[in-house]
């Protein structure tokens, strides 16, 4: 049996309810008793409607949010939560953003400079290297974020809806990159609304609804359950 990469046990994350959302406890249960484990080299897909707790789960695993209760055991270096264009600056160029983002991710300046060409090539942004980010489309930003974050030497990657935008070619390249990482024994947790992709590229699927864990298991089985539960199919 392979070594566990992540173990989540009875995880609860609550937020203080905003003024116009009063309930008895004044708390919103963003995650309510989530438990799962993931072996090294596995890909976990998380599905659920908007507001089901997918992003909160990624942020709590990464330590951005503190868990209200429960345990999270992480075995390996975590990459930052990869989201569309998050952390980028509009007023500076694509290359300057790569350097800034890389520095924040813990890369050395020389290391980043050596990787700039391969990042631009992967993201298909070579012609836009000196362009300010404010002129970039969401697809271009996504490609840039994905290509930069993939340079980080981490064991666990957390990917939040990043593949919702971008053309087919880039999506295929990104999935190929996932597969390469998987072969190297890296663990990936990704959230998505793309059910065919989650079925195709995940080893396990976690289905969340209103912060609750509805089920976890084989991709095909969970996606079918999700369709029945949410879409009434």
């Amino acid at each position: 049996m392979k070594e566990n990469s992540i173990i989540v046990e009875n995880l609860i994350k609550t937020f203080k309810a905003p003024k116009n959302f009063k309930n008895k406890s004044n708390l919103i249960y963003a995650l309510n008793n989530i438990s799962f484990s993931l072996e090294k080299g596995q890909i976990l897909g998380i599905i659920g409607k908007n507001g089901s707790g997918k992003t909160t789960l990624l942020r709590t695993i990464s330590g951005i949010y503190n868990a209200t209760s429960g345990n999270i055991t992480v075995n390996g270096k975590l990459a930052p939560v990869l989201q569309i264009g998050i952390g980028f600056r509009n007023e500076i160029s694509c290359v300057e953003n790569i350097i800034m983002y890389g520095l924040l991710l813990g890369l050395q300046k020389n290391e980043i400079k050596n990787k700039i060409n391969s990042i631009l090539e992967f993201a298909d942004l070579k012609d836009f290297a000196r362009m300010k980010l404010k002129y970039f489309s969401s697809g271009m930003r996504t490609r840039l974020a994905f290509a930069t974050a993939m340079q980080i030497k981490s064991e666990i990657f957390l990917v939040d809806e990043i593949l919702a935008v971008g053309d087919m070619d880039f999506k295929q390249k990104s999935f190929d990159e996932f597969m390469r990482l998987k072969k190297e024994g890296k663990t990936i947790i990704h959230t998505t609304h793309n059910l065919s992709a989650v079925e195709r590229f995940s080893d396990k699927v976690l289905f969340l609804d209103k912060g609750k864990q509805i089920d976890i298991g084989e991709p095909k089985e969970i996606v079918t359950k999700y369709k029945k539960y949410i879409l009434g199919e």
Partner: peptide, 11 residues
């Protein structure tokens, strides 16, 4: 002003 970074990195 750095919420983008803070929501992505446990920094």
């Amino acid at each position: 002003n750095n919420q983008g970074i803070l929501k992505s990195l446990a920094i």
